[in-house]
Amino acid sequence: MLFLCLTSTNEYGPVKDNDLLDELIIGVANNDKEAFNLLYEKTSVSVYSFALSILKNAHDAEDVLQDCFISIYDSASEYRSYGKPMAWIITIVKNLCLKKLRDRKKEPEPLSDNTDISFSDNGSVTAEDKILLTMCMNVLSDEERQIVVLHAVSGFRHKEIAQILSMQLSTVLSKYNRALKKLRKNMTKGEQDV
């Protein structure tokens, strides 16, 4: 297990171009449209995926994606976390999601089934993607899903994930491995069913 931990933390770096992202955010602060477009291109997948992993609802996650970039646009001039741009952005996402969850509680009508996620708006989702996404939503616990997304999609190291989610490194590692195991198990089951 220790061996696994060492290899996995070395193998995947965080989103590599921290310096570039720093520059882009400074560019956004100076009203540079190109910088904003590029920043969106580089980080929107991480933003949306993390939001989806918390909210389990494609529509809400899209709202957060939009609000997050509005927030980045507005507060780029206060950006001081040089060297840790993704942590800054992920914090924004997290806070927006928590707000969304609070708002949900206030809504009078019962929530529609969270797990019924429609991906139909987007043409690039394949049938296989759809199965895997649904599996991530249904099979994994909230924490497992967030850990998997932060590592597999955004490339955060387990150590960084432990900081982001305020967990012990050992907890992150065990949850991560358990999550992959669960997914793999369900995938083979799915194949056998077919």
Binding site: S49, D121, N122, S124, V149
Partner: peptide
């Protein structure tokens, strides 16, 4: 890949 494809 699955998550990337689903981003609006």
């Amino acid at each position: 890949q699955a998550f990337s494809h689903s981003v609006p």
